[in-house]
Nucleic acid binder design. Structure first.
Length: 446
DNA sequence: TCTGGGGTCCTAGGACCC
DNA sequence: TCTGGGGTCCTAGGACCC
């Protein structure tokens, strides 16, 4: 059995600040968002005095003062550096590391002895504390989704910050106590949909029919069901270059003139371009947006965006800014109080051309014939099934969802992301009346 | 008065290609 | 009796994550 760990830095930003202010250990600490608008990180002590996540500073300032809460503006350069140190530490304990976010990583632990694994992770935890000053929690389980839950338990209920969830007798009790919304991948909306189906706990979702869940939550939801049952659908993945790069800010104060917006957008573009070059990519397009403050309901509202595509992808700051300036002039309207602007670099490609690779560089006549035969066999099978009218039988795993009329058959393809299941890929090419009739017949049979 | 800043994946339909 | 079959790319919208 393969095992995964989720390692999560406790109250990461607050912990980072404390590394450089050790007298604050044991004290309530919060870190604020850009412009010092709201709370984005809290130490355990700050949580205990009742400061919620996202709390606007102005609402809680007096209360924080009363409790002697230490308040920090955010320092992302520091957090990024601390994060890199923590992430590097993992490689001393397993080769298989996926950086999931600034404060979380999944570890692949296949090949480790299950009985000594918790101790191994405890050693890792102590080492990270010693090397970086950051406290972490570790959840171990057969799938990533379960490891996430195990991590919650490690944080809440253990003294040593490590919990391994492999005890099958305890599983139902543990999962029965977890609300569906606390599962990784299930948020409020999906939680509400599941509750309508009578599914309110992790245990109930674990026992639900994957097919039924797919109907309401798509293949993403189905994967979660499999994962809760200990069947991994998600694996450790290498860090990929970003597909889009975003840079945006809300302004400290309202701005109305074009020049201020231009200055802001130019600097956002420069930041984004820097990130772009760091990952050695070029952008094929740039998307620029501005908007008024949606919270000020009495103000006239305006929000718009423009997209510029390049004939040749570029990473040149000046070219990107030129394009962004054109876009902003296009969407700017006088008479509004703007609150936020941003740019997004899209259609990113690698700076160096990709390597060409062939499935079979030099097929022999025999191989060619074989692959053609294989193709014909598939077609034959489809035709046979069409003749028998069984193609859409439920056991074939076909889905009629989204069907608009005209689909006549699907092709069964294997989806490696779902263990032991297959997807039917539908086509909607056959629009002739005769085919539609045939479709209706087949649907009747079903 | 104040209310963050990033990202990813999936679905569905249509255009288009060989 | 009907009839090609397999694919990619694009866009917009909706969901999710930290």
């Amino acid at each position: 059995m393969s095992l995964y760990a989720l390692v999560d830095c406790n109250n990461f930003y607050a912990s980072c600040e404390r590394v450089f202010a050790p007298h604050l250990i044991g004290q309530p600490v919060v870190v604020l968002s850009n412009n010092d608008g709201c709370v984005i990180a809290r130490s355990d002590e700050a949580k205990a005095v009742g400061i919620p996540m996202g709390a606007p500073l102005h609402d809680y300032h007096a209360m924080m003062k009363k409790h002697g809460v230490a308040i920090f503006s955010s320092n992302y350069a520091l957090y990024g550096d601390m994060s890199a140190r923590v992430m590097r530490s993992f490689h001393h304990f397993t080769p298989d590391v996926e950086i999931y976010s600034i404060d979380e990583a999944f570890l692949g632990l296949s090949g480790f002895d299950e009985t000594t694994l918790p101790d191994h992770m405890r050693r890792m935890r102590r080492a990270i504390r010693q090397w970086t000053g950051i406290p972490v929690s570790v959840g171990i389980a057969p799938t990533k989704t379960l490891a996430k839950l195990a991590n919650r338990i490690a944080k809440k209920y253990t003294s040593d910050g490590v919990y391994m969830m492999t005890d099958h007798d305890l599983m139902p009790r543990i999962l029965g106590d977890i609300e569906v919304e606390d599962i990784w991948g299930i948020s409020k909306r999906w939680g509400a949909r599941l509750r309508q189906l009578g599914i309110g706990t992790a245990l109930q979702l674990q026992q639900a029919s994957p097919r039924q869940i797919r109907q309401s939550l798509s293949v993403v939801g189905e994967r979660i069901v499999h994962e809760l049952n200990g069947h991994p659908c998600l694996t450790i993945e290498e860090v990929q270059p970003k597909q889009t790069i975003m840079s945006s800010r809300s302004f400290g104060k309202m701005v109305s003139d074009l020049q201020s917006l231009e200055e802001a957008v130019a600097s956002y573009t420069a930041r984004a371009a820097e990130k772009l070059r760091q990952q050695n990519s070029r952008a094929g397009g740039i998307y620029v947006f501005i908007r008024t403050n949606r919270f000020r309901q009495n103000d006239p509202q305006y929000s718009n965006a423009a997209m510029v595509g390049f004939d040749d992808a570029t990473s040149d700051t000046a070219s990107l800014i030129r394009a962004a300036m054109g876009a902003i002039r296009h969407i700017y309207r006088a008479g509004y109080r703007y609150h936020k602007a941003g740019v997004m670099l899209t259609d990113l490609t690698a700076q160096d051309g990709g390597q060409m690779s062939l499935l079979n560089p030099d097929p022999t006549p025999d191989e060619t014939r074989q692959s053609q035969d294989k193709r014909m066999a598939v077609l034959d099978r489809i035709n046979t099934k069409m003749g028998q009218g069984t193609l859409f039988h439920a056991t074939e795993g076909i889905t009629l969802k989204g069907h608009k009329g005209g689909n006549i058959y699907g092709r069964r393809i294997h989806d490696p992301r779902i263990q032991g299941t297959e997807r039917w890929r539908m086509r909607s090419q056959f629009k002739s009346p005769a085919y539609t009739t045939r479709w209706n017949e087949l649907a009747q049979v079903k």
